[in-house]
Amino acid sequence: MKITLQTIELHRDAPTKPALGERCNGCGVCCAAEPCPIAWVFLWQRKGSCRALEWHSESTRYVCGMVTNPTRHVRWLPTKLDAPLARFCTNRIAAGIGCDSHAVVESADQT
């Protein structure tokens, strides 16, 4: 297995990444590390932090913008398709179900 080191930046108040298979808590690690197939298809993004990853300060968690408001990220999409595409994306990425990121997170000491 090839091990790749990657540095990602997340909000300092983001929750700690749950263990693989545990309930999603909005830590943002998976989407900050790489775009999912939804981003590949709708945002034409294959690498880097997902452009649809949004920090919600009121709930102190990250959310997928393709789940909360797809037409903000896919500007050519008619707004009447916002709700159906949000449902589709929610199901496809299993939003809020369980952590599927194999990433091992190490926090950088900030002084």
Results as ranks from 00 to 15, higher is better:
Arg72Cys: 00
His73Val: 01
His73Arg: 01
His73Asn: 02
His73Glu: 00
Arg75Asn: 04
Trp76Lys: 11
Trp76Phe: 06
Trp76Asp: 10
Trp76Asn: 09
Trp76Tyr: 07
Leu77Trp: 00
Thr79His: 05
Lys80Ile: 05
Lys80Trp: 06
Lys80Asn: 02
Leu81Ile: 03
Asp82Phe: 01
Asp82Cys: 08
Asp82Ile: 04
Ala83Asp: 08
Ala83Arg: 13
Pro84Gly: 10
Pro84Ala: 12
Pro84Tyr: 02
Pro84Glu: 01
Leu85Ala: 12
Leu85Ile: 08
Leu85Thr: 03
Ala86Ile: 00
Ala86Arg: 03
Ala86Gly: 09
Arg87Ala: 11
Arg87Ile: 00
Arg87His: 10
Arg87Gln: 13
Phe88Met: 13
Phe88Trp: 13
Phe88Glu: 06
Cys89Gln: 04
Thr90Leu: 14
Thr90Met: 14
Asn91Ile: 01
Asn91Leu: 02
Asn91Phe: 01
Arg92Ser: 15
Arg92Gln: 12
Arg92Cys: 05
Ile93Ala: 12
Ile93Tyr: 04
Ile93Gln: 07
Ile93Lys: 03
Ile93Met: 15
Ala94Leu: 11
Ala95Asp: 07
Ala95Gly: 07
Gly96Ala: 11
Gly96Thr: 01
Gly96Arg: 09
Ile97Ser: 06
Gly98His: 14
Gly98Val: 06
Gly98Phe: 11
Cys99Lys: 05
Asp100Met: 10
Asp100Thr: 15
Asp100Phe: 10
Asp100Arg: 15
Asp100Glu: 13
Ser101Trp: 00
Ser101Ala: 13
Ser101Ile: 04
His102Asp: 08
His102Asn: 14
His102Ser: 13
His102Val: 09
Ala103Trp: 03
Ala103Pro: 02
Ala103Met: 08
Val104Leu: 15
Val105Asp: 10
Val105Asn: 12
Val105Cys: 15
Glu106Gly: 12
Glu106Asp: 11
Glu106Gln: 14
